[in-house]
Nucleic acid binder design. Structure first.
Lengths: 331, 331
DNA sequence: TTGAAAGCGCTACCAT
DNA sequence: ATGGTAGCGCTTTCAA
């Protein structure tokens, strides 16, 4: 069933059918209705490929992240997908994993599928050299980066001020006389670097020295973290607070701390990051930074729509984060 | 840059270029190499729409679930996406929410995008009447249902024996003299009904009567569940065990139980379902049923590949689940 | 092994 | 308001 069949049945030309299809005003209402009726009866769906061939667009956005199984990316993807759909776009999902080559490969796959734009959740490319690849992609379609930053043409970044969030957290701890603050992080992405910088700046601005041995990279695995933090607490008994780049890391720390008989937050307060569902699961519940992933994502989509409609769009937008106080730390 | 440009530069016809593109053996190796070189140099990517027009396929699979932000669906989608990609398919993601009309709408959207097949995670359609819509979809493309069942043509279901899992859990509790077992569930999907049936059958087979007041539907919200379970425990102090259809429900129950001063598992054992990351976050950690979502999903994809290659495929496949013992309950 | 040419189903421009 | 028609870039016969 194609446009010719519909045209024939309706006794009009395919041009008219096409006009009806595309909501052109230049169709007599009666004609339009007749065509619509026939389409309805025939359960006709226009062929997206033919349409794509002509328009060179299929209203589809590539969404790329390392792994949707991750609770944070999952939330982002969920919000993106909904916002995209509301604007008439579908989401083509790519989970790249952490291999740089895979990331490049998936980017090419997305391009080959002729997506109208690409949204990167997190800036997956950290090394300087590799970013040229993103730059190339941006020459073909707009690239939106959520929680990452690259100063390229046709690349639009929307980030949360995580540096400041971490700065505030560490500052308040320092001001409460916590001088030995363990910092746990997992990745060296743009976002990861922001947070670590916030941690360091807080120390600097309080004319204190951050002990580099207390800035520890850990795997994203509760058991492994627990083991590692237990050892750290034994080696550095003066640690009196823990901040993290991810809720899950805070949970690993929490387990180690309580297992050693310390109380949270009385003995050692803990602050997570991302304000995920996990914060509600622990006991005590986890105070955590809400980096506004929902705002980030909805903004990303409206920003994209602006790009498509030719409005001028800032290369970088930043929103602020908010500390959600629960039991593991109070301001 | 299109096939004509490549053909011209290579001094061959577009037919030959097309053959190279599609790996036809009927091309002289030397010719083939020349064409490939030119393509490479020109950074040529075949137009997917034109190709789709001819082949009427774009190697894209619609993946539909209620919400990827849900940790369980997120994992499923992650695995599916990877498995699909390994087989040369992309995943077009649709998060429908719970509105029936939205589900239908998204199904139509997927069809309009000319996906090669549709994978439903969970059987989102429960009412008898509505399933006809899925049946219609299955007339156009293969439908795979993960953890759901509908006996339609061109519909392939792969489920986990959750009835049996729940049956076993409740049975072992009954045999440990827990006669008042609170059952918490959240949805009435196929999967949800399986579990509740398992609960009831266990009581039947032990010639006991399940108190219907202890089969409680709750929202998927920790705080709300905690409130509700607290009240239940006060109203029914004889409750001596809790089983749930979802880990998050178990966590709500856990909070209520420990807040009332009971010990888990000594006073009241708890069993979750899905074996999600959440099980590791609580204290005590949560014993939970692993319903093999990874196996379900990888099987779904290989099953789909079989359908495409014309192999005969069973309409329903069932795998078995496994209880993962942690602290909240031991066999 | 290669080329010529007829579609695939739609959009958009030019006529009328 | 409507029709005719030339593409869009590819696949796939049919011939050579």
């Amino acid at each position: 069933m194609n446009i010719y069949d519909i045209a024939k049945q309706a006794g009009v030309s395919i041009a008219t059918v096409s006009r009806v299809l595309n909501g052109s005003p230049n169709v007599r209402p009666k004609t339009k209705q007749k065509v619509l009726d026939i389409m309805e009866k025939a359960d006709y769906t226009p062929n997206i490929f033919a349409r794509g061939l002509g328009l060179n667009s299929i209203k589809m956005i590539g969404v790329l992240c390392t792994d949707v199984a991750d609770i944070y990316y999952a939330k982002a993807v969920s919000i993106l997908e909904n916002a995209l759909k509301q604007n008439g776009f579908d989401a083509l999902l790519c989970c790249t994993g952490n291999e740089l080559n895979d990331k490049k490969k998936y980017l090419d796959l997305l391009l080959a599928k002729r997506v109208d734009a690409i949204i990167l959740i997190g800036s997956p490319f950290k090394e300087k050299l590799d970013n040229s690849h993103i730059q190339q992609v941006a020459q073909k379609v707009p690239v939106i980066i959520i929680n990452g930053f690259l100063p390229f043409d046709n690349t639009y970044c929307i980030t949360c001020d995580e540096l400041d969030a971490m700065y505030q957290n560490v500052s308040s701890l320092l001001e409460k006389s916590h001088k030995e603050i363990l910092y746990l992080y997992d990745v060296d992405t743009y976002s990861g670097i922001q947070k670590i910088d916030g941690y360091k700046q807080a120390f600097n601005d309080h004319t204190l020295l951050a002990d580099p041995r207390l800035i520890v990279k850990v795997p994203k695995d509760i058991a492994a973290i627990t083991t590692q933090v237990t050892k750290l607490l034994q080696d550095f008994p003066s640690i009196s607070a823990v901040v993290t780049s991810e809720d899950i890391l805070a949970i690993g720390a929490l387990k180690a701390i309580t297992a050693l008989g310390y109380l949270v937050p009385e003995d050692i307060p803990i602050i997570g990051f991302n304000n995920s569902l996990l914060c509600e699961c622990t006991s005590p519940t986890l105070t955590s930074v809400d980096n506004g992933v929902d705002i980030l994502c909805t903004n990303a989509v409206s920003l994209l729509v602006d790009v498509f409609t030719g409005k001028s769009v800032a290369n970088k937008t930043t929103i602020s984060s908010k500390l959600i106080e629960r039991e593991s730390f109070k301001l």
